[in-house]
Design a protein around this nucleic acid. Structure first.
Lengths: 207, 207
DNA sequence: AAGTAATGTGCACACTGTACACATTCGCGG
DNA sequence: CCGCGAATGTGTACAGTGTGCACATTACTT
């Protein structure tokens, strides 16, 4: 290996590995972040990674956490644009809509990161991720405004996440993959609107 | 290799390989169906598979087609149970509901096959799979009955599939994985009901 | 029955993750 | 300032993967 000019110690290998992993995952998704390729990108031997990560999976998890941060960032940005509305009720609705569209938009624009971020939430318990917290906060706004009952919020969260995540999968890995962006965007708006409408118009679990 | 008692020619290797792949995928999903493991299960050399499949991916696709058939079967079975209803309108709604719950139920009971089946629909064009045709047929029933406009059917299809597929992902690979079956089933019913309600109560694309 | 196409084997190569022993370097106590 | 232990990176090795190529064996056609 040509390591001319490089110091024996890297300085901040973990960060370098995660950065390289992010780049690889961006193009090829989770399976593209291989130990050997990542360490190669960082100009280091494959085994060097084991000083900082237990195994490949741990590395992937760390990279996934970064991807998840990107997703949360994108959601926050898009939601901020929906803040200009006088009526609080309609404002809360528009924010939830923006949240869903941002989730789908991120999936379409960064499919590699999206797949990685979803597989990151490996913990089986109730999720404590930034994107999830944003969803809960948006639904809490709806409750505060009165268009959603407090008891219906948990169910609403799963319904919204399901619709939006499902569409993201269809658009990035399913039958909608490769369709014109404009068509996908229009469908996304319909699906998100339907989900939002379903949640605020049908707050109580009906059996 | 111990091939005592075996003929040089297998008889029907493709079928044997697909059967072995199906078994492996059932436990470990798509990535578990490896060329070497599949051929090993069939008692044959790894390269023998290349006489019948172009590469590993082609084999996986063939196995995925079988998994997709199982999914369609499960959907048909469950839908048949919803046929006992006098009122045609409510019958159509119940059938769509049964369809969605069957999709989710299959995902929960056979997560390996489910993941495989979804990744099978690799074709970017409009899907022509059995499960998709069942969905379209169910929506056509709603149109015939008058609770859904003919023009709103395509959008409704994507909305239903999104909600149901998204929930299946959350339940099998996402934060809902490992949750008690009863809890998952109740959530599934809520999500499916919300989707069905959203589709029949909001048939026109609202922009 | 003979020859050709179909099918399965063996060997090889590049690639992956991961152990293990070793080399190098950093930082702290004297 | 020195030196020594801890942290970090290297080298080598092994099992496993997909896949190409030459060869062996069997089935089928004429």
């Amino acid at each position: 290996m040509d390591r001319s000019g490089r110091r024996y110690h890297h300085g901040d290998l973990p960060a370098a590995l995660i950065a390289a992993g992010l780049e690889l995952a961006r193009a090829g998704g989770p399976e593209a972040v291989s130990l050997r390729e990542v360490t190669r990108s960082a100009g280091v031997t494959a085994n060097a990674a084991y000083r900082h990560f237990a195994d490949r999976h741990a590395l992937v998890l760390a990279v996934a956490a970064r991807a998840e941060q990107h997703l949360a960032l994108a959601m926050e940005d898009r939601m901020a644009l929906a803040d200009a509305d006088a009526d609080p009720a309609s404002r809360a609705g528009r924010r939830l809509r923006a949240l869903g569209l941002a989730y789908i938009g991120f999936a379409v624009e960064e499919p590699g990161w999206f797949r990685l971020a979803f597989h990151a939430g490996a913990g089986a318990g109730p999720p404590d991720t930034a994107p999830y917290r944003l969803l809960i906060a948006a639904l809490d706004d709806l409750v505060a405004v009165g268009v959603l009952s407090a008891g219906g919020r948990p169910n609403a969260a799963w319904a919204c996440w399901s619709a939006v995540h499902g569409f993201a999968e269809l658009a990035t890995q399913g039958p909608l993959r490769g369709h014109p962006a404009a068509e996908v965007r229009e469908l996304a708006e319909y699906v998100v609107d339907t989900a939002v409408h379903g949640v605020i118009a049908r707050p109580e679990p009906g059996r």
